[in-house]
Design a protein around this nucleic acid. Structure first.
Lengths: 226, 226
DNA sequence: GGACTGCGTTTTGCATACAAGCATTGATCT
DNA sequence: AGATCAATGCTTGTATGCAAAACGCAGTCC
């Protein structure tokens, strides 16, 4: 019989081993449990997680793609240090791509899409109610994910996956920037998208990203000298 | 095994096995030797190239990152079909990212950088002299690579690697678009960059990409119905 | 006639084993 | 003493082997 799972939100158990290793390592790196600059020896990681080197290798390659580790041939993987220059690059790219995301989302908007965005916004409001910083950041990220989904561009999704990986990393490092009226900005974007107004959506997205650059840089700078 | 080094910039003969397999498969897919929709079985590829499955697996994952093949868990890899929608996505993204490339190149320009760009342009002219379509396309791609190098943004380089992979694929499919005064456009961009004028460079880059959309789409459409 | 089920084949996913390259240490020479 | 170079251990790269999941094909039951 067909195993038709309708909209399986979270499918945890059936993952490939590589996926679990990858997720585990991402968590450890992003949380800082594995420090920047540290070497990631395949055998070491393998026996830490009680698996063989093969899936570990593969997970490391993905991490390299995401920019979290650097792999040099025959010299292994090391956790990358997040520098000021990296953050500048990240914001330069986001200013270009988040604009495109908003533009395409507005172009392809449907009633169902509007509903999903509204739901995401509601979750953000609820999160604000709890005051839980982590939940606020997570729900805000969720809004962006839905937006990305609505672009219907697999290429853009692939590219943004790399970008988002670094954004998450950065945000964990500098948690204090969870919100500066982000919810209001999201709401404004939703309005523009609902009306299918690409130009306004694009302008708002640009402003949304650009606003975050300075405080993020300052937060990272403080972190780095500590 | 095919040794396909175009325009041998650097002698890389003792690359890792994975790199050679990857390059080989890219060549075969891009050239159409392996047709879209075709399955890529690990053992088959392995004995075709007379290597083991391990480096083949790794090469296939890279191809997945590049969007050339699709891998579904426990179901193997198949060569992706390039659709009209894919091309639209590609141009949408290029219109955003090539603009950023030009802008950052202009921002970080140095004398050495200008020299490299001039050299790249000269090579294009030489290629034009020979009339060899392949060389023209290759030298044009080279100009873009140098430009990318000058951005000094590793993130942008990583993202553009994915984009360029698809661009190459597409251009091999629709070779007829090798040139519509691209050389002149490159020259104009060089001028703007030399002067460090980000805005002009950005505008030229946008126009440069946007001009190619229509003819490329039409070429692909012709190809698809054939 | 059609769909479900059970089995064998095929193919991927993971583990283990072997080879080759880099790094570090220690000995040798100037 | 400082530099050079060889030997050894450690780490990655590649090959092979094994287990389990997916596909195909009958056969069976309704």
């Amino acid at each position: 019989m067909l195993d038709m799972r309708p909209e399986g939100e979270d499918e945890l158990t059936d993952d490939l081993l590589v996926d679990r290793i990858y997720a585990d390592l991402v968590e450890r790196i992003v949380s800082g449990a594995i420090a920047p600059g540290e070497r990631l020896r395949e055998v070491h990681v393998a026996q830490l997680l009680d698996v063989s080197r093969v899936p570990v290798r593969e997970a490391l390659r993905r991490l390299e793609f995401d920019g979290l580790v650097e792999i040099r041939p025959r010299r292994g993987a090391t956790v990358r240090q997040l520098t000021i220059a990296d953050v500048e690059e990240l914001f330069d790219v986001r200013e270009a791509l988040e604009v495109l995301v908003a533009r395409l989302a507005a172009r392809h908007i449907s009633e169902h899409g509007v509903a999903r965005l509204e739901q995401a916004l509601q979750r953000t409001e609820i999160a604000h109610g709890t005051g839980d910083e982590r939940r606020i950041v997570a729900s805000s990220a969720h809004f962006h994910e839905v937006l990305l989904e609505l672009t219907e561009s697999s290429l853009l999704k692939a590219l943004m996956r790399v970008v988002s990986g670094r954004v998450h990393w950065l945000f964990r490092l500098t948690t204090d920037l969870g919100d500066h009226g982000q919810a209001a900005e999201h709401e404004a974007m939703l309005d523009a998208i609902r009306n299918g107004d690409e130009e306004i959506a694009a302008a708002l997205a640009y402003a949304h990203v650009a606003r975050g650059r300075r405080p993020t840089l300052e937060a990272l700078a403080r972190k780095l000298e500590a």
